[in-house]
Computed example of a mutant assay.
Amino acid sequence: MADAVRALEESYRDLADGVGICRPRIDLSLPVDDTRVYRWGTMEGSSARSGYVAIRMKSDVLRETGPPGLRTQEKYCVRPGRFCGLVLLLDARTGEPVALLNDGLLQHLRVGADSAIGVRFGARADARVLGLLGSGGMARSHVEAFLAVRPLERVQVYSPTRRHRERFAAEMRERHGLEVVAVDEPEQAQHGADIVAGCTDTVGDVVFGHHLRPGTHVTCVGGRPDARARDRFDVWLRLGSASAPASAPGWATEDEYVTYRARPDAPVWRHHHDRGGHRPPQHARLVRLDAALAGHDRARDDEEQVTFSERGNIQGAQFHAVAAVVYERAKERGLGHEIPRDWLLQDIRE
């Protein structure tokens, strides 16, 4: 995890310096039936310093289930419990494809590392208590990532299924030697927390402003902060924005997702919420990570501010950085299955 945090910070510096480039995530969405949609999502990025290029590809069938306020998004490929996400890594110095990686572990690593960078710059230096909303794989990676930047002592975790949150608490106690408490209500997870992290597959609000105390840092990679939480954010830390195309600078966007829909009038879209882009409230002071990295701005001016961090739309810049670390380590250790280069090359000019 420490390597992932370091790789992302380097990638973000490359973006700020104009050495790195990436585009926002682009989704193609098609109706499957009255309740399900298919989504093909891609994001890509590169750095002239590292010499690697990567594209991450996701193939998901999606369905939203549950009552308002508790609605979740289910996804699968082929059948429930199976998923298809791939990262193709290429060497920009030769053009050669060098690795094809499943994205599951990389996804958890890069999202956790991303949130940890937000904590490094936005949380109080004495932050010790984490309020965690969610108990799945993403929650596990966040505990590990936050420990890389803050000496946590206590974790308060809530998820709707008691068995899941209690199992998570026991696992984190054993793995990290922390005090980890499974709580029965989401507000109990936030009570007294210095850092609050939403790590769920909930579609709606998961972080509630009336439970946030002064000095809290918030990050939310599943669900969203409610309106009162947004009203309480004093500082909004954005980790980066995708590069603008040199040939069409007007295409620049700060939206996290760019979505194309087939049959946009199909009834199924009424059952699927647009995720849209994060927009800071007008009263919050917007801080960009490149300014913080350069020492030109700070994400926290005092101990009472409530801060929030979000990645922006630079997912493409994350995957080439983390995939390159994995590829180089795998080569060193002789791991993986080698595919003959000739399978991927041809002698017909495109």
Rank of each mutant, 00 (worst) to 15 (best):
G41V: 08
R124K: 12
L147P: 00
V129A: 14
L86Y: 10
R93G: 15
G45R: 02
R71Q: 09
L147K: 01
L133G: 03
V98L: 11
T94N: 04
A123V: 02
G95Q: 08
L106G: 03
L88Y: 10
E74R: 03
Y76P: 04
G51W: 13
P67R: 00
A145S: 11
G81W: 07
L86M: 14
L105D: 10
T72S: 07
C84D: 10
R79D: 08
D114C: 13
T94I: 03
N102M: 10
K75W: 05
G104K: 09
G41E: 12
A148V: 02
C84F: 15
W40A: 14
P80A: 01
F146M: 06
A48Q: 09
A99Y: 04
R124Q: 09
R128P: 04
A99D: 05
P67C: 05
G81S: 10
P97F: 12
G81F: 08
G85K: 05
A113L: 12
A113K: 06
G45K: 03
L101R: 11
M43D: 06
V111T: 13
E44C: 09
S47Q: 01
R120H: 13
I55D: 05
D103P: 04
K75P: 03
A113E: 11
S59A: 14
S50L: 09
G95M: 07
L100F: 15
V111E: 04
H108V: 02
L130M: 15
L147T: 02
G134V: 06
G104V: 08
V111W: 00
R128L: 13
A127R: 01
S135P: 00
Q107K: 03
W40R: 10
H108L: 14
P97S: 14
L133Q: 06
A92L: 10
R79I: 03
A116N: 04
M57C: 11
T72N: 01
A48V: 13
T42L: 15
Y76S: 05
A54K: 01
V149N: 02
P151T: 15
E96F: 08
S135H: 05
F146V: 01
Y76V: 00
L132E: 09
A145H: 01
W40F: 15
S115V: 11
A48W: 08
L90I: 13
R124C: 10
L100R: 11
H142C: 11
V149W: 00
A113D: 12
T72V: 12
P80D: 03
L89N: 00
C77Q: 01
C84T: 08
S141C: 10
A92N: 07
P68Y: 12
F146I: 07
R63G: 05
Y76I: 01
P97H: 13
A145R: 01
R56D: 05
K58Q: 14
L133N: 04
V129N: 11
H142S: 10
Q107R: 01
L88V: 14
R128H: 14
P68V: 07
G112V: 07
E64Q: 13
E64P: 02
V78D: 07
C77D: 02
D114A: 05
F121M: 04
S47C: 11
